[in-house]
């Protein structure tokens, strides 16, 4: 039984790493621009189609295709910021959230029109058979996912903690107007944050693709879990997003194994509402301070 539990938890952590990556991207964007990007999953999905086209239609080598897709994701994020969000500078947050929802619908619809809703297969990037260590089956894909999460998490922390970009982002969050006056290139910093955020969504989507297949709504479930992971983490904390995502992955896998997989989202959602009753700022969140 312990073995079984461990095995499920391990698979849960691997699954949770996708939620964590998605949540990380959401938090990066939110921290810089205070916008919750409801097009997050759809943008990651769009980048996955780039990888799909590169691999299956243009026969680009797989690693190169992934790099291309991730670069496309960064550009997509930066372009969306510059073309849509920048124009809504100073508009109520509700308006900015509405535009991301419109973008979500648009992207899913357009890719549905272009490629149809039939799932298209994507081979796993690493075709190594699972190995067994101490009775636990380790799938190479799972290890790669977790390793990528750790690597990207550390890289992000370093980027925001120790570079001018991170400093600029924090200044913008604090007071956009003052940051502009101080000579911080606000547009460029926000564009970079959006690019990085969408890049993280694309990494999650590409990693998910072998299991979910490539479809316009491949990210719908994952991004909802990403939102929930971000809320559990207090919507603002990078560490919170990672921990929230991993915990959520384990919980979802437990529900799948022991309760009812078809009710997983409902149960998780019920838990989220309970958590919000007890800890409105999430499990790791700091209290939100309102400015006058």
């Amino acid at each position: 039984m312990t073995q079984y539990l461990l095995q499920i938890s391990l698979a849960g952590l691997a699954q949770g790493s996708l939620y964590a990556l998605t949540a990380l991207g959401l938090v990066v964007i939110y921290n810089a621009s205070t916008v919750v990007n409801f097009a997050h999953g759809a943008m990651g999905m769009a980048a996955t189609y780039v990888a799909y086209v590169l691999i299956s239609q243009l026969h680009v080598p797989v690693p190169l295709a992934f790099v291309g897709a991730i670069a496309a994701a960064f550009i997509l994020g930066a372009v969306v910021q510059a073309l849509l969000l920048e124009r809504l500078n100073g508009a109520p947050i509700l308006t900015q959230v509405v535009v991301t929802l419109g973008l979500f619908m648009f992207l899913e619809g357009v890719l549905g029109l272009a490629f149809g809703y039939n799932p298209r297969p994507m081979a796993p990037p690493i075709a190594i058979a699972p190995v067994t260590v101490a009775g636990l089956v380790l799938r190479p894909q799972d290890i790669v996912q977790l390793a990528l999460l750790v690597a990207l998490g550390v890289a992000l922390a370093a980027l925001f903690g120790a570079t001018k970009l991170g400093l600029g982002m924090r200044a913008i969050t604090e007071n956009t107007y003052a940051a502009r006056l101080m000579g911080i290139p606000v547009g460029r910093v926000l564009g970079t944050a959006w690019g990085l955020g969408v890049l993280l969504a694309a990494v999650a989507a590409i990693l998910a693709a072998p299991t979910t297949s490539v479809t316009p709504n491949m990210m719908d479930t994952i991004v909802v879990y990403g939102f929930i992971a971000a809320i559990l983490g207090g919507f603002g904390s990078l560490v919170g997003a990672v921990v929230g995502g991993l915990i959520l992955g384990v919980i979802v896998n437990m529900i799948d194994a022991f309760l009812a997989p078809e009710l997983a989202m409902s149960i998780v959602f019920g838990l989220l509402v309970l958590v919000l009753y007890v800890r409105p700022d999430g499990l790791f969140g700091r209290k939100a301070v309102q400015k006058v």
Binding site: V99, G112, Y117
Partner: peptide, 20 residues
């Protein structure tokens, strides 16, 4: 499939940007 979603999504973006 996808057509109404694409049209409505595009309309929402355009409305927010140009016809608030």
């Amino acid at each position: 499939s996808g057509l109404s979603l694409a049209i409505l999504g595009g309309m929402i973006v355009l409305v927010v940007l140009f016809f608030p």
